[in-house]
Simulated scan of single mutants.
Amino acid sequence: MFSNRRARRERERQQDLSERIRSAEAGVRVAAAAEIVKVRDQQWALRELAQVVDREPSPATFAYTAGYFCDALCRDRAVRVRVEQMFARHDDDPAALARPGPR
């Protein structure tokens, strides 16, 4: 019973954060991103923050949301190691990190 209630509250919280992260107001988006980092469902948090970083129109707000995305990445050791390796492979050519690779 308690686990069902807790799961329902978590889903409602995620729904609220999903709505707030898409707000027209930059301050609301940044505050929501700060809360998303703390959500237990890390996969959901990373998806939401990746979408925010991808579509953030304001350079100033982008810096905050990208920082929260990085914080969420670093929560999981395996993910952090993979990302570090990915960046290390492109140390001599950072722009290659953003270029599409062969498919």
Rank of each mutant, 00 (worst) to 15 (best):
2 F>S: 12
4 N>G: 08
7 A>H: 01
8 R>Q: 11
8 R>D: 12
11 R>Q: 15
11 R>K: 15
12 E>I: 04
14 Q>A: 02
14 Q>G: 02
15 Q>R: 08
15 Q>T: 09
16 D>E: 14
17 L>M: 10
19 E>N: 07
20 R>P: 09
20 R>C: 06
20 R>K: 15
22 R>N: 10
22 R>M: 06
23 S>D: 09
23 S>H: 04
24 A>M: 02
25 E>R: 13
26 A>K: 11
28 V>Q: 11
30 V>G: 08
31 A>T: 12
32 A>Y: 06
32 A>R: 04
36 I>K: 03
37 V>R: 01
41 D>S: 00
41 D>E: 09
45 A>S: 15
46 L>A: 02
46 L>Q: 14
49 L>K: 01
49 L>V: 03
50 A>G: 08
50 A>R: 01
53 V>C: 03
53 V>S: 02
55 R>V: 13
56 E>A: 06
56 E>L: 07
57 P>D: 01
59 P>K: 00
59 P>Y: 00
60 A>W: 07
63 A>K: 11
63 A>G: 11
65 T>E: 03
65 T>L: 07
68 Y>G: 04
68 Y>H: 11
68 Y>V: 05
70 C>R: 14
70 C>E: 14
72 A>E: 02
72 A>D: 04
82 R>N: 10
84 E>N: 09
86 M>Y: 12
87 F>C: 15
87 F>S: 11
88 A>H: 11
89 R>I: 04
90 H>Q: 15
93 D>T: 13
95 A>P: 09
96 A>E: 15
97 L>W: 13
98 A>P: 09
100 P>R: 15
101 G>H: 09
103 R>G: 14
